[in-house]
Design a protein around this nucleic acid. Structure first.
Lengths: 161, 161
DNA sequence: CCTAAACAATTGACTCCATCAACTATTGAG
DNA sequence: CTCAATAGTTGATGGAGTCAATTGTTTAGG
């Protein structure tokens, strides 16, 4: 880093404005969310590198993750990815070329093709999931009570039953 | 959605395997992190759409967000984005063409160019930040106690002093 | 039955993001 | 002064995203 001549470059650790911009005090969800977003964001930054550890693009890693619980139609995958169906074609082309998945034509409806993990794909998926579940520092360093509380809070939020 | 003929497509609400894969019970950070990751992930899925509300690409939105606290050298921005410097050139080209930023040559070091937000860029940034701080449903629906606890936990985790 | 609408997947044209290698201009150290 | 290092750009290439158009298939209506 040599361009550090006197000017304000502020790359050090960026505490940013995590305090909530003048602290509206009434807007609890926004405050909590902004903090979460910060963590999320710094972590998502190295997701491409994480995927690259397995010679996957970020999206391929994402697909591999979603593909765990049974065959998915192309269009269903497109819905998961919130993207156009035409996009999935090329994406799956590349993954099929690497032997991670195969297209299987449905017999009930010959328009649809279902994606099935190959052995190799399933194995890679296991390794990937294991790697992705490794928490970042900010989480790993938290106190056990905070971790427990966080887990329970998130369960309540994500599993509304 | 017409391809729903009997087969297992499981797109409904995807509770996924949030319980932690056989519940190792010892690995608290992994459990908490996996839950956080789930939220993160479903939220990041519509970030492109959010950016598109402002006619920005996801990366442009990201840059606009980072560009708030003063001029940044191109290389510094590349470091923020964890990407190659050559990438930033075209990125900034497009943003400059839309009048959001300008390149200003440094006088101390004529190699570096600093990015400065234009009026329009700064205004758009404000609107963008406001929009981005809107919490997703899973957060908005949380109980106040959980929100408080979550905020405090995240503050402890992110502002280690 | 048969035609027309709806739908799954693909293709083609296009843009943006990302990487790498090569290049220019500038700085700074010996 | 010379030479290595640095900041930014360019060019080639590929993945990922969009949209519009096409093909093959299903389904619903007349």
């Amino acid at each position: 880093m040599s361009g550090m001549n006197g000017s304000s470059e502020h790359l050090e650790k960026k505490p940013a404005d995590l305090r909530g911009r003048a602290e509206p005090a009434g807007d609890l969800p926004r405050q909590a969310w902004t903090l979460l977003f910060e963590l999320m964001h710094t972590h998502m930054r190295n997701f491409p590198a994480l995927a690259a550890e397995f010679d996957l693009s970020p999206v391929q890693a994402h697909v591999l993750r979603q593909l765990g619980e049974g065959p998915l139609a192309m269009s269903t995958l497109a819905a998961y990815l919130s993207c156009d169906a035409s996009n999935v074609t090329g994406l799956v082309d590349r993954m099929e070329a690497r032997g991670l998945v195969v297209r299987r034509s449905s017999e009930q409806d010959r328009r649809v093709k279902r994606l099935v993990l190959t052995e190799e794909g399933a194995a890679l998926r296991e390794r990937l999931l294991q790697r992705m579940s490794e928490p970042p520092e900010a989480i790993a360093n938290m106190a056990d009570e905070d971790l427990c509380a966080l887990r329970d809070i998130m369960r309540r939020a994500l599993c509304p039953q």
